[in-house]
Write a protein that binds this DNA or RNA. Structure first.
Ligand SMILES: [Mn+2]
Ligand SMILES: [Mn+2]
Ligand SMILES: [Mn+2]
Ligand SMILES: [Mn+2]
Lengths: 218, 218
DNA sequence: TAATTTGTTTAGATTAATCTAAAAATTTGT
DNA sequence: ACAAATTTTTAGATTAATCTAAACAAATTA
């Protein structure tokens, strides 16, 4: 259907347009896909030809409905495979992304749907990101950055906005994995770091930089 | 490491040299990989350059040790994924080959080995073909074609030499799946067809063509 | 063993994805 | 508003994998 490369561009465009409703720029895509702007322009012409994106020279791109569907399907596969790797094969949450980057391109609707059932139709991947259902629907949870919380507020760690292995390993070491309950005990004015209680037991201070990348449900 | 395409050539050469110890010809490879002889020659030069094959112009090729290891590793992955699809996701034995053709190129030793453990270190795939262990060792069973058996002999269906969906579905319909016990009751002289008893119950006649492609352990 | 057939390689193109360098358009800053 | 800076596109090459047609080598067969 679409080549491996085309799929990666669609995914990149999708992720870049999540949240902000504006068109995505050539340079943004080049950075995301580790290519150069000239290569991106070539690919944009091809994707536009295939009606997967809306593209006007110098104006950036948006995905068409077809394009969104294709992108969401790849993301669904990526996240389901990540669940498989963690839940069934015993990988850690910081080890699965690169393998899922390959598995997400395996082409078989039956396979994805059976995998989904085999895993018990999970609603989130190991990093807390929502898994689109087979019709492409995504249930977004209302998540708040720890850095935006006030003293006394409490919540459950339910996602991360930074997926690097080094960050995920750090969270694990600090006991801040998904499902952990936290209460903000103090906001340190000096450097913006945050003191919190983890699972009603441990007291811990985290930097603002870390706090910005941990998402909780209040 | 090696490209998707290179891996497919290595696998083709491996399968073509199984059994017969001779060098494999350009045309054989072209047929197996659905390409033309000229394309094969180009790729052979590249694989020889990488020391994966022994290649002398006009003389055909053999795999080097490195080449054999690479090929066996791909076959290991292919067969493990087939077991996964059948045992865990509920696919039929005639539905898994094409998906495994894609999955076999996923690149992660950890993944393969954990999958192997998850599946309980199976020794054969859904078609009875042996699964190489993590060091590349293959335990071949002594298999005999039904067409080579004599009246009165008995055995257990343990493999097939034809993997097409149409043939596998036929075997299923006839109750000749892996593990089935058979006894040769009569060899029909007229057309070479074979009458046999299945699981001590059913009597059935199969054509010589079918019999040639079913492998049993005596 | 010479002629013919068959199989293999080379020559020259094509397509997808990428790049660098240069040109063109847009945006920014004074 | 216009010059400068930034971004994007075009032009022209490159690499991997493929093809067709033609040249060449090996095997067969008369
Ligand atoms: Mn991921
Ligand atoms: Mn994830
Ligand atoms: Mn197979
Ligand atoms: Mn098989």
């Amino acid at each position: 259907m679409h080549s491996f490369t085309e799929e990666n561009y669609l995914k990149a465009i999708y992720h870049l347009s999540e949240g902000n409703m504006e068109a995505v720029s050539t340079n943004q895509i080049a950075e995301m896909t580790n290519t150069k702007a000239a290569s991106v322009t070539d690919m944009l012409k091809k994707l536009a030809e295939k009606k997967l994106i809306n593209y006007i020279k110098y104006q950036g791109v948006t995905l068409t409905n077809t394009g969104v569907n294709a992108a969401v399907n790849i993301i669904r596969k990526h996240r389901l495979w990540e669940v498989f790797l963690v839940e069934k094969l015993g990988f850690k949450w910081d080890e699965v992304h690169d393998i899922a980057e390959e598995l997400e391109h395996i082409n078989s609707d039956t396979l994805v749907n059976r995998l989904d059932d085999f895993l018990g139709n999970p609603v989130a991947d190991p990093h807390g990101d929502p898994i689109p259902d087979r019709s492409g629907l995504i249930k977004h949870k209302k998540l708040v950055k720890i850095s935006d919380m006030q003293t006394g507020e409490s919540g459950t760690v339910s996602g991360v906005s930074e997926h690097s292995s080094i960050f995920l390993k750090l969270l694990e070491k600090m006991g801040l994995t998904l499902g952990t309950k936290i209460i903000i005990s103090e906001l340190i004015e000096f450097d913006g770091s945050i003191m919190l209680t983890i699972d009603q037991k441990t007291e811990r201070t985290i930097s603002r930089e870390v706090a910005k990348n941990i998402l909780v449900i209040l």
